[in-house]
Nucleic acid binder design. Structure first.
Lengths: 225, 225
DNA sequence: GGTCACCGAGTGGAATTCAATCATCCTGGT
DNA sequence: ACCAGGATGATTGAATTCCACTCGGTGACC
């Protein structure tokens, strides 16, 4: 089975985001505490106005402690982003497991539901839309979208027999970009998410993918080959 | 005729982005010079790494001059964004005028073409994807999208008899968000724009709007009422 | 006793201010 | 027409402030 595959294997300290791996157990709490604080601050002031001092104060730590764990300010944002992505993937897996899936559409629907749910409940979740404009060549939003598209492709191929290949990955990447944009728009003003945009997001995704992967389209594809 | 309507009336100093309206003529040149400098710097270092000093130096001015015209650093970015949007709208109008439009689709196609063209030729045009995460309650990307959707709706209603109303505006706003996302993705890495994403953008827009505004859909709508 | 964690004043660089200076426009006197 | 010289616009850049980030010193754990 491949649902768990969405989670991806451990990313190995996520490309050096954490400066020092905590050795003593209390530090683990510190680390997540810092991220919790950052998440709260993100919700309050947005992720540009955030300052290292705010994070430290909110976490009941000193500036130095922040820098003990993260090399710089954006590393904290990256880590928060990464945590949000991981939780998102976990939630998707949970939703997939809890639902009865009759077609690939149900899986896509679960993804949207998971995203919306986290946007509503997870503090600072909007960090998922954090696009690093710096020169950082490594991890960024596009890489995330690409990674997620590949993972989702695996699931759809294995569970629903969609035809594997670059086309599927590309289309899922397109779908991810569109969904990101529409859901971000849904939550731009309304903290509960504008239902119109959420519904339209589901519709758009389904229509777009149906074009290629509806039963009819797949039949055509099968007979043509 | 209503194509010109896309341009919108003068926004009246664009909601106070400019600190002091220039009185003497040399200042007008200064102002656009500052924006040109900012655009160049944006292309060189991205719009986070940009510093007021860089802008000033590039424009052959001193720091103080920047602050004479703009209250702060992000105001410069806003102004640059605004100028890019204005030029985009102008380009759309030009393209619309230069093309023979046989259906609303041609108009939508022109919009995409204009956007892609500017991304390629206009220095710093990627600023259009600048989303102010600050608490700035006023002008922002969503407001732009909304405004543009309304204008485009007017054109489509007047030129191609699409049914006016909130539904049309909403769907165009959805279309704008999707197109923004896909085109931004197309140019994320490739400075000339990844053709696959550009083509897919056109396809997605057409499919999405066809659902509601294809001749068939409109006929159904007409007979139903 | 030797790491591990933590602290917070100190450093440096970038954003922003402001008082002084220069440029242009305007007005009234010739 | 012309010009002096005040008024106002425009420019400057040193001084200030804010913030990310460093580092030597202090306690906590093992």
């Amino acid at each position: 089975m491949s649902l768990g595959g969405l989670l991806g294997e451990e990313t190995g300290a996520a490309l050096q985001q954490v400066r020092t791996e905590p050795i003593q157990q209390r530090s683990a709490a510190r680390l997540s505490g810092l991220l919790d604080a950052a998440a709260a601050v993100v919700d309050e002031v947005g992720f540009d106005r955030i300052t290292t001092a705010m994070i430290a104060e909110r976490a009941g730590a000193s500036i130095g402690t922040v820098y003990r764990y993260y090399p710089d300010r954006v590393a904290v944002l990256h880590a928060l982003h990464e945590r949000a992505v991981v939780r998102f993937r976990q939630r998707v897996v949970d939703e997939l497991g809890a639902s009865t899936l009759t077609s690939w559409w149900d899986a896509v629907d679960c993804v949207v539901t998971a995203f919306v749910g986290l946007y509503r409940s997870e503090p600072g979740f909007r960090i998922v839309n954090f696009d690093d404009r710096d020169g950082a060549p490594a991890v960024d939003a596009v890489a995330d979208a690409d990674f997620f598209a590949r993972r989702l492709a695996d699931v759809l191929v294995n569970e629903f027999d969609l035809p594997a290949g670059d086309d599927l990955i590309f289309r899922l990447e397109v779908a991810v970009e569109m969904a990101d944009a529409l859901l971000a728009r849904a939550f731009h003003t309304d903290p509960l998410g504008d239902e119109r945009f959420i519904a339209e997001c589901r519709l758009v995704l389904r229509d777009y993918l149906d074009r290629f992967y509806s039963p009819q389209a797949l039949n055509l594809l099968a007979t043509a080959s």
